[in-house]
């Protein structure tokens, strides 16, 4: 398929199956990945999402009024409520939830393991498209979006901005294929935590195929900075199921190590170890207050966007209820 493919052919048809529950009418990732341009992929997902969101009850969120405060000398007279002054002959200043836009930072894992894909596209491409979708969505809302690409060290960094043409730069960076070596979240995340002084949203998209023991302190350094962190754990269906048929020599994409494996013999133990790994990752995220999403690469990307927004809404309400931070997002 080319860039000019009919958008209608991108959507899944037929009834929902057990493997893909509720994905009817969603965009098929295989078809989507055939679109060469990353920006166009993101546009297709977001615009399709907008169509659906009109029917959604989650609408109308924007900058919200919180309270009045007595005007004191030094306050900006722009925020004086003149109507209340007319009624009460007193100066009051309106306070809003957050006077600035969201500052979102996308962290993309570009280690070699992200280059694996069994369905015609790699995890890296899927992760890139997911990041592009979020970036496009946030950019259209006027939020500042930054991008960091890393493997075992920081490869590319784009500071969060919302300038015309900046989205294009991000898209070009996301189109690059993974060139790094092994996955190591520690150094790049610590580096990012040091660089981001302004609190915001950090979206980490990775396969987390690294030592699970180092995951908690690595993510903890992000949370310690007061950032809202969302983790999209991207895995290929073949990685999740390990449904290979014949014995073969398996080669580690990161280390190059060879291992003769008979899938029928190791499938059970593989799944057991993987489930353990996933459960550990999820519990770590929960402990740190991080939203964790496991994303097989055959899952429609508009669902990812929907999950993301629902989480944000839940977090906003939770934040209100707890009376926590005054910082609020407009999403």
């Amino acid at each position: 398929m080319t860039d000019k493919a009919a958008p209608s052919s991108l959507y899944r048809r037929g009834r929902a199956t057990t493997d893909n529950p509720g994905t009817d009418g969603m965009i098929d990732p295989v078809s989507l990945m055939r679109i060469k341009s990353m920006e166009l992929r993101a546009k297709v997902i977001v615009e399709g999402f907008w169509k659906g969101i009109h029917r959604s009850p989650y609408h109308g969120f924007s900058v919200e009024f919180t309270e009045y405060r007595q005007y004191t000398l030094g306050d900006d007279p722009r925020y004086i409520d003149w109507r209340l002054y007319a009624r009460s002959d007193r100066f009051y200043v309106k306070k809003f939830e957050d006077e600035t836009n969201l500052c979102c930072h996308l962290l993309i894992d570009h280690s070699r393991s992200m280059g694996y894909g069994s369905g015609g596209y790699t995890k890296s491409q899927y992760a890139g498209t997911l990041a592009a979708t979020l970036a496009y969505f946030l950019f259209t809302q006027g939020d500042a979006v930054g991008l960091t690409i890393f493997d075992d060290q920081l490869r590319k960094y784009f500071a969060p901005r919302n300038r015309p043409g900046y989205l294009r730069r991000l898209m070009l960076a996301l189109e690059a294929s993974p060139e790094g070596s092994a996955t190591d979240l520690g150094p790049p995340l610590q580096h990012i935590a040091g660089m981001l002084t302004r609190r915001g949203l950090i979206v980490l998209i990775s396969d987390l195929l690294t030592s699970i023991d180092r995951l908690e302190p690595d993510l903890g350094c992000l949370c310690a900075g007061g950032h809202d962190v969302v983790v999209f754990h991207v895995l290929d269906p073949a990685e999740l199921n390990f449904d290979f048929n014949s014995p073969a020599i398996f080669q580690d994409m990161e280390s190059g190590r060879n291992m003769y494996v008979n899938p029928s013999d190791v499938q059970t133990s593989y799944r057991r170890m993987l489930d353990k790994h996933l459960a550990k990752a999820k519990s770590i995220c929960q402990n740190l207050g991080i939203d964790y999403h496991l994303f097989p690469t055959d899952r429609p990307l508009d669902l990812a966007l929907l999950d993301f927004l629902q989480d944000r809404m839940r977090r906003r309400k939770r934040g209100r209820y707890r009376g926590g931070s005054k910082v609020r997002t407009n999403v």
């Binding site: 694996y116 396969d207 014995p247 994409m253 190590r257 003769y260 494996v261 190791v266 593989y270």
Partner: peptide, 20 residues
């Protein structure tokens, strides 16, 4: 002498070798 099939896989961290 043995199979020539070679498969690239993302990570072998969850795999154990099988005796051919």
């Amino acid at each position: 002498r043995h199979t020539r099939k070679r498969v690239e896989f993302s990570s072998l961290m969850f795999l154990r070798t099988t005796i051919p």
